[in-house]
Computed example of a mutant assay.
Amino acid sequence: MPTQTTSNILMIRPANFGFNPETAANNFYQKKDSRNPQQINKLARKEFDGFVGLLEEKGVNVLVVDDTDEPKKSDAIFPNNWFSTHEDGKVILYPMFSSNRRQERRTDIFEILMKKGFKISDIVDLTFFENDDQYLEGTGSLILDRVCKVAYACRSQRTHPVPLAYFGRIMEFEIIEFDATQVVNEVISPVYHTNVMMHIGSEIAVVCLDSITLASEKLKVQEYLEKTGKKMIPITAKQKFQFAGNMLEIKNSEGGKLTVMSDAAYQSLGQVQVQTIQRYTDIVVPHIATIEKLGGGSARCMMAEIFLPLV
């Protein structure tokens, strides 16, 4: 029986975290910073270590892997975009928009997982889609309801329909795809990753319905969330820009449910929204302001869930 959450999380401790101009082309959550690279990386590592410590205090098994110094990878702290793991032992490698982010893919990480007792039965490599400029950036692009075998995805320059359909076929997931937009500097642009506007836990779904362009697609998302028994918690476009959609539900070693979100996301929520989440899970709030500002990603992006079976 598949499960929605895991207590095993892999995180990459940054060696050269910083602003990536290549990804900033369509990630409008990134902001430049005047501090020097050494200061920025030092702050990011401090935030990262604080985040890991917070999860460990809550009883989560965090496997920390240090980023390699070379080649320099400013976004290695966000491993969820290049791989995902599954309960049948599959690991999927994903095609990525930014050429400099493709250097983050490391087979030695899978060797580390196997040494820790996890079983990998198959590595499914979808990176060949990069040859045709087709992308699907892991659980940034895909919001997986693992129990109901449904994948939600907003189409963008990082989430293309062909690799999306391919994922659905090989993993036997039903695909619910839609267009989602946002207004940046008075210009309408696509939401670059689904996981900034949507989160699915075991019992709740946090979603910025206002971002979904077509009424028919919005209705379909709502219908599927209701059909799969999720308690919907709508968020506004303003809350989305504070990473309120970028949450992840995990569990601790005793099975207790935890919803992880950044301090910025938490502060943006209203009292009723917070209370609704707390009805189903505890809330864990790391402070990751530097990582959010320069990286344009938040708490969910930093955690790669390990669903692999144990040997």
Rank of each mutant, 00 (worst) to 15 (best):
D49L: 03
D66F: 12
G50A: 12
H160L: 11
Q4G: 04
P286W: 13
L113D: 11
S156N: 09
L164F: 08
M96K: 11
G59P: 05
R155N: 06
M302P: 00
Y192W: 08
A299G: 12
Y166I: 03
P95A: 03
A265R: 05
P163A: 03
R155W: 07
H193V: 02
N26H: 12
V183C: 13
K220F: 04
M197D: 00
Y135V: 07
L308G: 07
F110Q: 12
E57M: 10
I176T: 03
E47L: 06
H86P: 04
R169N: 09
V52H: 09
A299I: 04
S74D: 01
R35P: 07
I306E: 01
R105H: 08
Q30S: 08
Q182F: 01
V221G: 06
C148H: 15
F167K: 07
E22W: 00
C154A: 15
G297N: 01
G59D: 04
I109Y: 15
V260S: 12
P161S: 09
D282N: 13
I175E: 09
E203K: 15
T276C: 10
V206R: 10
N41Q: 05
R101F: 06
N41L: 00
G245L: 05
A44P: 00
F97V: 01
S298Y: 03
Q30D: 05
I170H: 08
E223Y: 07
T85W: 09
N131I: 02
E172P: 01
F83P: 02
T276E: 14
A215D: 15
L310P: 00
G117D: 03
H86C: 06
I288Q: 06
F51I: 02
R146G: 03
Y29P: 07
F128Q: 13
K240E: 14
I175W: 06
H193C: 02
